[in-house]
């Protein structure tokens, strides 16, 4: 279990991004629930922490793929593969995470750095 942040640091409607490898994001929904998923959209490398939180879903800021925070499923394309979900544990005033040990569905370029001679 890894500590994330204090409860007070994550108001409703906000996201907290952890610089893990791959990065993870914790959302505090408007309804007061906490959910954690992989931060990287499975379609193209983009941070879901910068996306739009709508109920129990987040919309990717780049191409509007929508992921269910409870299951990680990509409910709206162009993303097809799910993001991993992680377990959120609140202890006292601190938010913790139990990270999934499943294999993440990362887009090709995420975290790989520049590719020589790349072309469209």
């Amino acid at each position: 279990m890894i500590p994330v942040c204090r409860l007070a640091d994550l108001p409703r409607g906000e996201a907290f991004r952890l610089d893990t490898k791959p990065p993870v994001v914790v959302f505090h929904t408007e309804d007061g629930e906490f959910y954690a998923i992989d931060d990287t959209c499975t379609h193209q490398d983009a941070s879901l922490a910068e996306g739009w939180l709508e109920g129990c879903a987040v919309e990717c800021p780049l191409h509007a793929s929508k992921f269910d925070l409870r299951t990680g499923q990509a409910d709206v394309p162009p993303a097809r593969l799910p993001v991993r979900t992680h377990q959120v544990v609140i202890e006292g005033e601190t938010i913790h995470l139990v990270l999934s040990d499943a294999v993440p569905n990362l887009p090709f370029a995420a975290g790989r750095g520049p590719v020589a001679g790349g072309a469209t």
């Binding site: 193209q44 490398d45 983009a46 910068e50 996306g51 780049l62 790989r112 750095g113």
Partner: peptide, 9 residues
Amino acid sequence: LIAAPNLTS
């Protein structure tokens, strides 16, 4: 600027 492909990398 709030997002761009690969910006987090």
